[in-house]
Design a protein around this nucleic acid. Sequence first.
DNA 1: TATCAACACGAAACCGTTTTCGTTGTGTTT
DNA 2: AAACACAACGAAAACGGTTTCGTGTTGATA
Lengths: 339, 339
Amino acid sequence: MKSKITLKDIARELEVSISTVSKALKNSEEIGRDTKEKIQAFAKLYNYKPNNIAISLKNKRTKNIGVVIPDIVHHFFTTVIRGIEKYANARGYNVIVCLSEESFDKEVINMEMLANGSIDGFIMSLSSETQEKGDYNHLKEVTEQGIPVVLFDRITHEVECDKVIIDDKLGAYQATKKFIDQGKKRIALITTDDYLSVSKARTKGYLKALKESPLGIDESMILKMPSMEMDEEAIKTFLDNKEPDAVLCVNEIFAVCGMRFAQKKGLKIPEDISFIGFTDGVLSKYANPSLTVVAQHGEKMGEEAAKMLIDKVESEAEEETYQTKILEPTLVIRDSIAH
Amino acid sequence: MKSKITLKDIARELEVSISTVSKALKNSEEIGRDTKEKIQAFAKLYNYKPNNIAISLKNKRTKNIGVVIPDIVHHFFTTVIRGIEKYANARGYNVIVCLSEESFDKEVINMEMLANGSIDGFIMSLSSETQEKGDYNHLKEVTEQGIPVVLFDRITHEVECDKVIIDDKLGAYQATKKFIDQGKKRIALITTDDYLSVSKARTKGYLKALKESPLGIDESMILKMPSMEMDEEAIKTFLDNKEPDAVLCVNEIFAVCGMRFAQKKGLKIPEDISFIGFTDGVLSKYANPSLTVVAQHGEKMGEEAAKMLIDKVESEAEEETYQTKILEPTLVIRDSIAH
DNA sequence: TATCAACACGAAACCGTTTTCGTTGTGTTT
DNA sequence: AAACACAACGAAAACGGTTTCGTGTTGATA
């Protein structure tokens, strides 16, 4: 077990000073040709690599970015992480992932853990508990310390920082409009409670499209699921009672469940009843019939967030100017609607 | 923007030495009551938190663990990460995630990035390219430096380190046996090329079960997909030609695709043709019919891996003793087989 | 020959901790 | 009064780098 070689080791071995070694390895003009070559050769031979921690301590940059998300076993978050990781890696950054598991306390603890020097900035999506609670002091504290934060998807406007979201309202609007244009009359919405910023926005888009149409709004056609957990019964009775001919769902799972019940009742998809979900995940792709969805472009979102964050981290200027990037969703047409 | 307060700041402000502050904050007996109280109060007031980087440099422990996996947009890996993260977090560790994207080079680069002080140990699953190539020098170098490594799922026996796998062979054996017991006669296997250690093991289990049965082995009932990418046509023609009455698939996607083609041909699942897949993901759960799978218990695997790693990291002893933990898979019975 | 610039290198501070090993001042013991 | 124990604190080294600012040597210049 040959443990890592340091500048000091090289200096001792070659009988020069530490500073000379340091400079030689950075190819400084200050050091003579012979000495440089000797040192560089030696360093290569012993596979010298500078210690990241020491460098971090010196220039107060870790080249790590902290990602705090509610859950990782969700296709959307997963794609976002991938986008972040790819982009960050290309710029020499590592990604530290922390899971809040939809818990406010865990979110706070995770941020505190990372905020003491471990990372240069945060990318995060709020836990449902945080959004419900409306307490964003942990975010404010961090930004006040000068640590940049980029919020994505589940955001709040109460914190001044960069944000990147998709236009959820527009996505829902377009999907609903699609139904209307196809002549659907009883268009339902299956969503979660309003505390999730995204569900709220999607509901708005749904309502807007209906309001603009001759159909108008029927609040009873909206099913609000109390939690993120699946409650199959609720969906079943809702479909039985309301008999919609088109259903917009705020995620894949609601949609796939809905389709299953519809099929069990003998309804034909998309003729008798059409479905559109959110999130372009595996479920939509391999569902039977395959599910039309509003794609959120998670990977793109991750890239954008990472870009915004790293740009801010690396800009010396302390501009107090923040932007919100709004990505356009796109409708991915599959067999759960007519086409 | 009040930037972080340091020991030095407190010392200056309270006109004591840095060492006194440090000791006072650790409640050292060395420091007098009054002084301690004064310092602790001041620290709390200004929300002092020690700088992680400095501490890492001092005691050569980062409390970070590096996770290098081929892909994150796969349910199995995702659950493993969750298991790792939960366990590691509970023990005060953070998780740095790097994606190799099935590329040997990326795997090497990622490991080098992290091996220079950023982490205390690695948890990883090999990229397909690495397994194909059979080059494990990057792993050996790291272990020789004294950095502990835990391999999971996609492992190699050429590197001496802790490992945690599920008994893939057993899983496939049990699944195949299930088919045999149910009176299936034409049992097919859809797998990937053998370079993936897991596919190899699963194929072995499948073959073993058949060999032990009166049915015997028919190599032509095995479809080897050349890559991880879906090739729907290959599956379709395979099913058309071989007309199996039971299909074991090494992942969810192959199985769901298979089921779809079978249904299109008018076959009834599970009566005419049964399916079993690997990986207990969303796809299996919400497929129609829901898919029976060999569950790999990714989260458990992640926990085990994290436990093994952290135990090793925190044990002073330089025991050169490594263990391989083998988790038992379980068959999750759903509607794609008779029951 | 005295002066000076350029060259090549080293000393030391610094980043923020921890920790060892003094060094005081006080009170107790004989 | 001398010796000593002990409590309370500080100085400084160490972790592994980077960087500023010398400093000694050389050769060229006046």
